[in-house]
Each structure stands twice: as C-alpha cells, then as structure tokens.
Simulated assay, not measured.
Amino acid sequence: MSIWERKALNFINQTSRWDKDKHISSFLAFSISLVKNLTGADIALQLEFEDEDTAKVKCASPVHLNDIVLNPEPIKKLLYAHGFKTIYWRELPVPKENVFKEVLQALSSAIIIPVNTTPNNSLLVLGWSEPPSFEPDFVECIETIRLRLKEILLQSQQQLYFQRVAIRFAAILHTIPHALVFINNDGFSGWVNQEGATLLGLSGPGEQLPAVLSDAMMQLRNKALNTEEIYKKAVHLFSSPENALTNWTWQLENSTLSVSCLPVTTQQISGRLWIFETLDQ
C-alpha cells in the first residue's frame, strides 16, 4: 500500500469515527483540517456559493481567510469548463486568470475540488507554496477524499434539515391543547407532549420509554370510574394493530376525558397515537 493510499484510508477512518462520536455541526470543519494535514497543504478552505452574487470562504485554515467574499460567476464558469471535476493547478494561473487570487496568494500550486455536482453548493480549495507530486497515487487519494467530502456535506445537510424539522414539529405539538402520547411498536421509543406529560404525571415532555408511558397511562386508567367499560373497549382495540378508537370516554373523579387511539404506520415507524381531550374543566 502506497503512502497516499494510507492517507486516503486514514481520512475515511477518522471521518467515520467522528461521524459516530462528535456533533455534525463541526464535522466539515474537522474534515477540511484533516485534508490539509494529510496533504501537507499550506491552506485549505471551503467556498460556499450563498447566492448568485456571493461565494464566501468558510472553515479556512489559516482562519484569517474566513468570510472573504469572492465573485461566484467566474468560478462557476471555471467549474463548468472542467465538467465539475477536480482541477489540478500544478502552477497557478497568472493573476488575471486566477479566480481565486484573493485566497491563493504567495502559493505555487492548488487543487480545486467540487464536492457537489451543482454549481450552487460548495467546493474545497487546497494550496501549496511548494507543489506536491501530482503522481497517480496522489490524484487517486484526492479523488477518494472528494467522494468522502461529498458524503459528509450531504449527511450534514440532511441531518441539519431533519433537526430543523424535528424542532419545528415538536414546538407545534407541544402547543396543542390536547395531551398527545405516541408509543412505537419497536418497544424502545415513545414521545409525549407537554399536556400529556402533565396529565400522566411525568417529569417532562419529549422522548420517553414505551414502558414508562404505558405504565403512566395504566395508572391513569385505573383511576377512572368506568374502568370496566374502558377495559371492554381496550380488548377490541388491541385485538388488531389496525383498530382505532375515537370519542372513548374515561370518567375521572374531577374530569372527563375523551380519548382517541389511532394507528400510525409509515415506512419508518409503526405505533399508536393517543389523544386525550378534557371535556369539562
């Protein structure tokens, strides 16, 4: 195994460990720093196309390059001309033709690595004062890193998107005036909103073990004045995963609850959603 094959494997291994142990928000910055160290580059940075008029430097090493803004139009033309493949500059173009001259100063060579296939995302720029060997093993190492970086960007974008969605929907569900309880059929995951946590006497809303939720609902049910009626309907409800019940009355000492239990089935989850509505205050 050549030294560049070992470096490519090192990059994959270290980013994989980070994937498991660290927060995704710092994943890309770590990866760019790792590329810089493995390749011996003097500078390494991400250039993100924020809009039609702005390409901004991020995750730069050295850090003083951060937030430099470049004109994206000539950079996009360069990427189009090379079919969005990695660009290897063994010698930097003359300043007039160097679209990265603001960040590639006092250097002799550079590599521009598109990490996505569309012009409105990101690319990685590496620069050297002393040019490295552009031998085939080195080029193969760079291409392996490029593919891994593309995976990292896609993963970070997806995870941040799902985090935003989860925060948004959790905020919505916590403001619903009904008590909501979801119990996944996997036996490991469940969720309750603020009203549900209050009704069931739990410490707080959010993720809860199904056993905890089931036990709390059983204790609530045992306090009902019509437990025999509740039990008969529960037998029908749980006789089939597809069964649902709505407007199910639980008469408590100080209030009456209208209870619904609905099956929730998608490709990702399968469980039941419980909805408790207080009929009288």
Rank of each mutant, 00 (worst) to 15 (best):
T265S: 14
H82P: 00
L123H: 02
L107K: 06
P93T: 09
L45K: 02
L92C: 13
F49N: 05
N222C: 05
E48I: 06
I75Q: 08
H23A: 12
Q251V: 12
L279Q: 15
L257T: 05
K56H: 00
N98Q: 04
Y161D: 11
L126N: 02
Q105D: 04
V264G: 07
Y88C: 10
V192A: 10
N184W: 00
L213S: 03
I152R: 00
T54F: 01
Q155E: 08
P132S: 06
P263M: 00
A216E: 09
V57C: 02
T246E: 15
L47G: 00
D186C: 13
D215T: 13
W4G: 01
L180A: 04
S25Y: 06
T175K: 14
L149E: 02
F238D: 08
Q46V: 14
V212M: 09
L47Q: 03
W248P: 04
I75C: 02
L200W: 00
A44D: 02
A216I: 04
R17G: 04
K77N: 11
V212D: 05
N222Q: 15
L153C: 05
K223S: 13
S2M: 11
S203V: 09
Y161F: 14
K77S: 12
E130C: 07
L237H: 10
R146A: 14
Q251E: 15
T117P: 00
I269L: 13
A44M: 05
I68H: 02
T265D: 12
Q267F: 11
D215S: 14
S189T: 15
I75M: 10
P114G: 08
I172F: 14
T118A: 08
E229N: 08
H64Q: 11
R221G: 07
S133H: 09
L123E: 00
A234K: 13
S26E: 11
Q194L: 12
C261E: 09
K96V: 07
P177G: 09
T54G: 03
K85R: 14
T265L: 10
Q105M: 12
G187W: 07
P177E: 10
Y88V: 11
M217A: 02
I172G: 10
Y88F: 15
T175V: 07
W191E: 05
D42C: 11
Y231G: 01
I12C: 08
A170I: 08
S108F: 09
L65R: 01
T54Y: 04
R168Q: 14
F238Y: 15
V235F: 09
E135Q: 11
L38V: 05
T198Q: 14
I113A: 04
A110N: 01
F188D: 04
L209F: 06
I68T: 11
S33I: 00
T117K: 13
F134H: 05
P177A: 09
A224Y: 01
D137W: 05
A110R: 06
S189M: 05
A55R: 00
P72R: 03
P136E: 12
S189W: 01
T266W: 04
L126Q: 03
N184Q: 13
K150E: 12
Q251I: 13
K85C: 08
S61V: 13
D21N: 10
L202C: 09
K76D: 05
N116A: 15
G190N: 11
W89K: 08
K36Y: 01
T117W: 03
L123F: 06
K56G: 01
V259P: 02
I12F: 12
